[in-house]
Design a protein around this nucleic acid. Sequence first.
DNA 1: CGAAAAGTTAACCGGATGGTTGAATATGCC
DNA 2: GGCATATTCAACCATCCGGTTAACTTTTCG
Lengths: 126, 126
Amino acid sequence: MTDQLSLVFAALADPTRRAILTMLLEDDMAVTDVAAPFDMSLAAISKHLGVLADAGLVTREKRGRVIWCKLDPDALKSASVWMQGFGQFEPVDLDAFERFLDDHLRTDILDDDASAHSPSPNILGG
Amino acid sequence: MTDQLSLVFAALADPTRRAILTMLLEDDMAVTDVAAPFDMSLAAISKHLGVLADAGLVTREKRGRVIWCKLDPDALKSASVWMQGFGQFEPVDLDAFERFLDDHLRTDILDDDASAHSPSPNILGG
DNA sequence: CGAAAAGTTAACCGGATGGTTGAATATGCC
DNA sequence: GGCATATTCAACCATCCGGTTAACTTTTCG
């Protein structure tokens, strides 16, 4: 199941991961803070974030000993585009989408300009 | 993973199933005909159709010894609504959606004039 | 330095998934 | 009746998934 679209839908097929995405819509968050509201181990959340990152829905950036998680628009766009292509029932305005996300993703937590459009996931030292 | 939305996304997370949905967009089809283009057993396709049906994306209706598969709008709508609620980036026009599907799904099983209003071909996921 | 904090990784477990083959159940047809 | 067609069901298998706990790395700080 290597194709990106399948990864995206599979990532969305879990309520915990959808909740994480919703949380990240508010703000970039550290892994520990992402995990806080959930009744499961930090390791489990770390795995969920890995799934989201593999799908391209989230990127992680290490700063000090904290890893900051942020939404990445690209993958969601691909799912959106598929839905559009499928049913033609969603008049997706991709420009509006970009604008919305730029608006939402412009955060003060990571004010590096490198975060502007770095599609590279897995910056984790590995 | 009982919630409907998870079932829908999980169902969409497979290229074979997305291809099936795309095929069904053209026309209602018998299980055997759905299976024809795929290089896998009929039983496997039957299972896929079961997954799609559990997700509410497809309904099956027996007529004689043939089971006709057709798209069902409701589940897709739920996924669409979630995306809308999530990102607010898709101005989903549900009425247009309904109209589109009514148009597409109104084809009586043996009524083949759905080609009148040609929908643009769409991208197979995967 | 040494301990605490932030995350990942590894090993493990039970249950779901995606596929197979073969038998079973309806239904249609001669 | 009897056979072919259409489809599911059942058993089985390998793999993946979501969770756990324990160990490990990296970074911060007294």
